[in-house]
Amino acid sequence: MTDTTRYTAAEILAILSARQLKDGQVVFAGVGTPLLAATLAQRLRCPGLTILFEGGVVGAFVEPGKLPPSTNDQRCTKRANMVLGSADVLLLLQRGYVDIGFMGGAQIDQFGNLNSSFIGDPAAPKTRLPGTGGGNDISSLTNMIVAMKHEKRRFVEKVDFITSPGFIRGGTSRAESGLPAGGMFRVITELAIFGFDEKTRRMKVLALNPGVSRENVQDNTGFDLVFDEQIAITEPPTEHELETLRSIDPERMFI
């Protein structure tokens, strides 16, 4: 399991997520781990990473120790290249200017669909969750990385409600629904890194986090995972990664 002596689950989540980003990309980041991981990537390896926030920010460099409490606060605009209206920054996704959408998740299913709207029947919900925000727009219009906690109740066969579409019912159903672009690219948890099968679009394990077994991952997942023949073991977070992450969020707002 996670080596709790060196780092927390939230820390490995942020660090592994940051490693997925490449210099020069345009990334649309949600609040929490995505904002933190994108900022971490910028500080470590990707000075040319352009971060977009749904509040209308293009090219943010969030200041360490001054993390914004949402992606609509003034702290998001620090050293940005531009501020736009909210609809206009989202329209950049629709036009195709964004390489990666980067979000957290409350509940995900085998096809990468995300639910952040309802637990139970939407007509008489057990729990009304906050809803989509920009999540539906981002996941409909670009390639997605999702960073989330790995729990059986969060990794379900079928979400109660598709708030932000992944591959919908698998196969070609996403494109047939009117979403020809984008789709789920990676899911990062404190246990493993996941991709999606090219044909069936079911979630598959690409790499295990250090100290995590296949059984650990499967036991914490509510559906049968696809495992590749050869599964990589992810390199543990380095001291440099951990130090940089902690310097960005010294108050432990998101880690």
């Binding site: 209206g85 609809a87 939407p122 539906n136 727009d137 409909s140 219009l141 409600f161 598709i162």
Partner: peptide, 29 residues
């Protein structure tokens, strides 16, 4: 969706009855 709220206000501001978008499709939203 967030963009849909924005485009609803924009259509209202433009004096047209609707605007087309490419999100929300395929979702339960």
């Amino acid at each position: 969706s967030h963009m849909a709220v924005g485009m609803r206000f924009r259509a209202g501001g433009m004096g047209v009855p609707f605007l087309p978008i490419r999100s929300m499709l395929g979702s339960d939203v």
